[in-house]
Design a protein around this nucleic acid. Structure first.
Lengths: 133, 133
DNA sequence: ATAATTGCAAACACTTTGCACCTGT
DNA sequence: ACAGGTGCAAAGTGTTTGCAATTAT
């Protein structure tokens, strides 16, 4: 039901080839224009949504003044959350059985089915915490 | 240099008297209209900025689809977290000690200090889950 | 054949701003 | 008197949407 299109492949390629932590809609559009790729703004937005919902991409909301960034997450087991450092922007994987337990608990006792692949916990990583004192 | 005005007092009052966890620009405007208070949208935005910058208020960015919530800083209500339904976009709040436990565990055992006010768990709410089958 | 995807431009939601008028000090 | 605040309507920003044309299956 989901077709494989030139545009979708190219968007993923662009993100994969960018080693920046701050891939934004604008930065992708810049590459699109520079390389004469044929993808409209609307398609880009739609594709990013798709990738985020499929768990291939993480949408990182830095703060509401700055547009969101997108980061690749190699898709794998679903039972892990991501951590993003608010200071340095780095993305970490949290492999922890407690995540699964919490997800289960919330589903059973609070009637809400958490989708771990979309969850991003923001905070401060070790390194940045050390730096700042 | 900052004048004390009727409008600023009233905005603070409204927020103080609201026991909701999700005070938003819209919810404040509703009260303003209901009580026939004389504050314009522009002033409300300006006042909220002021209160946030002065440290009286905390702006909570749940996600970019939902407008931000405002919380009095003195309340220190760090013990509730947010759930956002991916289907309907609705925002729920979750009072659950297990989330706090996870946050603590992540700090102690994974060396990452989660910012509790930014914990947002995405998934599917009860209502949407029922609808889709 | 037909279901999904695309580009375009228009619509959107939320927020900010310029300016003339008003208010607090 | 004058720095600061207000309301209005207009502009801004980033994103979404309706629709006819196009493309993947």
């Amino acid at each position: 039901m989901a077709y494989k299109t030139k545009q979708r492949e190219q968007v993923l390629d662009i993100i994969k080839n960018s080693n920046s932590k701050h891939v934004t809609v604008e930065s992708i559009l810049n590459i699109i224009r520079k390389d004469n790729i044929d993808i409209s703004r609307a398609t880009l937005y739609r594709t990013l949504d798709l990738l985020v919902n499929s768990g291939a991409l993480k949408k990182i909301i830095v703060d509401e003044k700055n547009p969101p960034c997108y980061q690749l997450c190699e898709l794998e087991d679903n039972d892990h959350f991501h951590l993003v450092c608010e200071k340095c922007g780095k993305l970490f994987h949290l492999d922890c059985e407690k995540v699964g337990e919490l997800v289960e608990h919330i589903e059973e006792d609070h009637g809400f089915k958490v989708n771990p692949s979309r969850v991003v916990l923001y905070g401060t990583c070790d390194e940045c915490a050390k730096k700042n004192k």
